[in-house]
């Protein structure tokens, strides 16, 4: 098929698709990005002179729920990849919709949390905790938002007549890599910010 021939043109001498390799290199660079943000948060942890302090306002049950939602979105994402790879387009589309909804729900939790913190007087300029917390979790939220748009574009593409078929499963696979990376970053942030005491 034309699509298969087109995709075959992306193979490197290693037998690795260069688009997938590019995504892995991009994710490796993202490790540095989030590593810097997490380092900054840890350096200023416990150094705030004025409140609100993390122990006063962090709502662990709420964030645990949003963490569960993001974890489950990884399950739906991997099932979407499974559907694409096995030619089960209905499964792929359904799971993409599920992932988009779960990702949007996670963002809803984050918006609620940010607004609540604003109401109790914590913002970017309040103290070191506010500055580093909003920067780190905000950038993660932006990544989730980009992921939702990425998956939505795939879903819309799959509805075109010449859209995502089994031959182009790699597109979904690559998007899945991005989504799972956003999930593993949150696994680290959730532990460091919410679970480990100040």
């Amino acid at each position: 098929m034309a699509a298969a021939a087109h995709d075959a043109g992306h193979q490197t001498s290693l037998g690795v698709d260069n688009r997938k390799l590019l995504m892995w290199i991009f994710l490796a660079s993202e490790c540095l990005f989030f590593g810097t943000l997490i380092s900054t948060y840890l350096i200023f942890k416990g150094q705030s002179l004025v409140g609100p302090f993390p122990g006063d306002i962090l709502d662990i049950p709420l964030t645990s729920t949003s963490t569960f939602v993001l974890l489950m979105s990884s399950v739906t994402m991997v099932l979407a990849v499974y559907g694409a790879q096995h030619g089960r387009l209905g499964l792929m589309r359904g799971m993409l919709v599920g992932t988009i909804l779960l990702g949007t729900t996670f963002l809803g939790f984050q918006v609620y949390e940010f607004r609540h913190f604003g109401h109790v007087g914590l913002n970017l300029g309040t103290n070191q905790f506010g500055a580093t917390f909003f920067l780190m979790t905000g950038f993660h939220g932006v990544h989730v938002g980009v992921g939702v748009l990425y998956l939505t574009s795939l879903l819309l593409g799959s509805m075109r007549r010449s859209g995502l078929g089994k031959e182009r499963a790699l597109w979904v696979d690559t998007a899945g890599l991005y989504w799972h990376f956003v999930d593993v970053v949150w696994i680290v942030i959730f532990t460091i910010v919410y679970l480990i005491p100040e």
Partner: peptide
């Protein structure tokens, strides 16, 4: 991926 993680750990 490991190169990214090791570089990030070194940076931290």
């Amino acid at each position: 991926f490991l190169i990214g993680i090791v570089l990030a750990a070194s940076l931290m």
